[in-house]
């Protein structure tokens, strides 16, 4: 199985120290986290981690189970890029005089859908949102014109097939695992859903 980019989406309680607990699951196996974002989720009080790594599916599946095992983690999903809509945000600081003088730069920014966030006499800050490759191409394009500062955010991603976490959460609110044996909805859905 070859390595590819996977995005892991983790729904959690909001708890100090949980970031570390999740991060060490990767560092323990010497896996580099390409990008990590924490944010609120569609459900109030539930947090959402978005983690991007480059690994084989086998390893990613095991990682997700280890993550889900943590007491404060509700659920961990993993997806390939095809299964996601995602964006990263980037900020570029460039000298204002260059932009003012060089028509090419203006065209470039327009082409990439960059917006000016701040315009000052000495510098201008542009932002773009998009996939990493798009952002990276713009850096390359801007470099010859004196890119002063650059920063890119972690990936945020929406799972195309997800129906949101509201319904899922109800399962966790049940008092205890059912005493009686029930037919399990997760059967044969291993690749999509993990459960504890």
């Amino acid at each position: 199985m070859s390595k590819q980019e996977f995005t892991i989406t983790v729904y959690t309680e909001n708890q100090i120290g949980l970031l570390n607990r999740i991060a060490i699951i990767f560092s323990r196996r010497k896996i580099n986290i390409e990008s990590l974002n924490t944010s609120p989720s569609e459900v109030e009080s539930v947090h959402r981690f978005t983690i991007v790594i480059n690994e084989t599916e086998d390893v990613v599946r095991k990682l997700c189970r280890q993550i889900e095992k943590q007491v404060e983690v509700l659920k961990a999903y993993y997806n390939t890029n095809e299964e996601l809509v995602w964006q990263e945000l980037a900020l570029y600081k460039v000298p204002t005089d260059v932009i003012a003088e060089k028509v090419k730069v203006e065209r470039l920014l327009r082409q990439y859908g960059a917006k000016a966030v701040v315009i000052r006499k000495d510098y201008t800050v542009f932002e773009t949102a998009g996939h990493r490759e798009e952002i990276d191409t713009l850096i390359k394009a801007l470099e010859p014109y004196g890119l002063i500062e650059f920063v890119r955010s972690a990936r945020v991603a929406i799972i195309k097939a997800s129906k949101g976490f509201h319904e899922k959460l109800k399962e966790f609110d049940q008092a205890e695992p059912a005493e009686e044996v029930i037919e399990n909805e997760f059967l044969d859905k291993q690749d999509e859903v993990f459960t504890m």
Partner: peptide
């Protein structure tokens, strides 16, 4: 809420 000590038994 976030901790399920026992997985649901899968009869199949």
């Amino acid at each position: 809420r976030s901790y399920k000590p026992k997985p649901t038994v899968r009869k199949e």
